[in-house]
Nucleic acid binder design. Structure first.
Lengths: 169, 169
DNA sequence: TTTATAACCTACTAATCCGATAGGTTAATG
DNA sequence: CATTAACCTATCGGATTAGTAGGTTATAAA
């Protein structure tokens, strides 16, 4: 409570009623991480957890993680084409890790599946794009704030590898 | 360079060609911060910068910040209803700050305009929603990662007030 | 050599959301 | 009483997401 208070976790005020109104009105709450990325990370973790280098079938992951098989197929295909996975066709085939889990940072997985990590293209390192409304990035009040957010997110995602997130608890 | 290397800013590999392919194929790069929120923050900063408590017209902000006036109207209205702004109708009317800029945290602004700060509803403090696919949040490899991201983002946004982001440089 | 398997490929679609636009009504000022 | 600026309601095109459908190719086992 004391720790969270200073980062604004619980600053209850009039805004809170607005938030509650939003929750009840809108059925679907906006998610910033697409299911594609979420499933992709889960699948990678699943494969990493198995440990051995035997190919894992899409159907197995799909069942175990409750993911539509067809959708998962397209995701794993993309992960193979991006150099995260290798594949083998036919019976006993499937997908397997190419690199060590310790060498796969979450930054690169998310960048490939999701795109930019930054909340706004004008502070993105890999997907930079100028805002069409801002004449000057230095004068923009949002810009420096978003740079701070980007850097703190990048720190977390860069520090976490596939080995970290697939470690059994 | 040294600092950024350990957080995965520049791990060039095969993924990089994927990223470049994405950049060229897709015209519009996904943004996690909606224009609504972005404009809302800019407008608040604009009002805060003026310093005095005289009402600021929507048209003035709209012109100065290159924002569609009608769109901005709806945003400022929402900010008034959420308790950030007061308003005055008629000639000489407009919007003015109700609280001190130092007392307006970015967390609350973003929560009202954008919704959840967390990347995924299942780690959201104010907009929590269980994943329909995950049987157990503890066993989910994405969950703890997203909690870390949420906390670091919350720290940045909670530390920054309207006074901070509207400070002249 | 055939058959089963599982990756791989192409195309389509329903639902949803964002960023506006249009056109009006109400309230305050001079 | 006219002007101003907030306030309200409705609608819409374009884009994206999360799939589904229906096939083809390559590999291993029978």
């Amino acid at each position: 409570m004391v720790i969270s208070a200073d980062v604004g976790l619980f600053d209850f005020s009039i805004e809170n009623s607005i938030i509650n109104a939003k929750k009840s009105i809108f059925k679907y709450i906006r998610s910033m991480l697409s299911k594609k990325t979420k499933y992709g990370i889960k699948a990678l973790a699943f494969i990493a957890k198995k440990g051995d280098r035997k190919p894992v079938q899409t159907s197995e992951i799909s069942k175990s993680e409750n993911i539509s098989q067809k959708f998962l197929e397209s995701i794993l295909l993309e992960l193979r084409k991006s150099g995260f996975l290798g594949s083998k066709k036919g019976k006993g085939g499937g997908y397997y890790l190419i690199k060590e889990p310790e060498d796969i940072r979450m930054t690169s997985v998310i960048r490939v599946l999701e795109g930019p990590i930054a909340m706004v293209p004008c502070v993105s390192l890999n997907y930079y794009e100028k805002c069409d409304d801002c004449p000057s990035e230095e004068a923009c009040s949002v810009h420096s704030l978003m740079i701070q957010v980007r850097d703190s997110t990048l720190k977390v995602l860069g520090d976490n590898t596939l080995a970290d997130i697939s470690a059994k608890k």
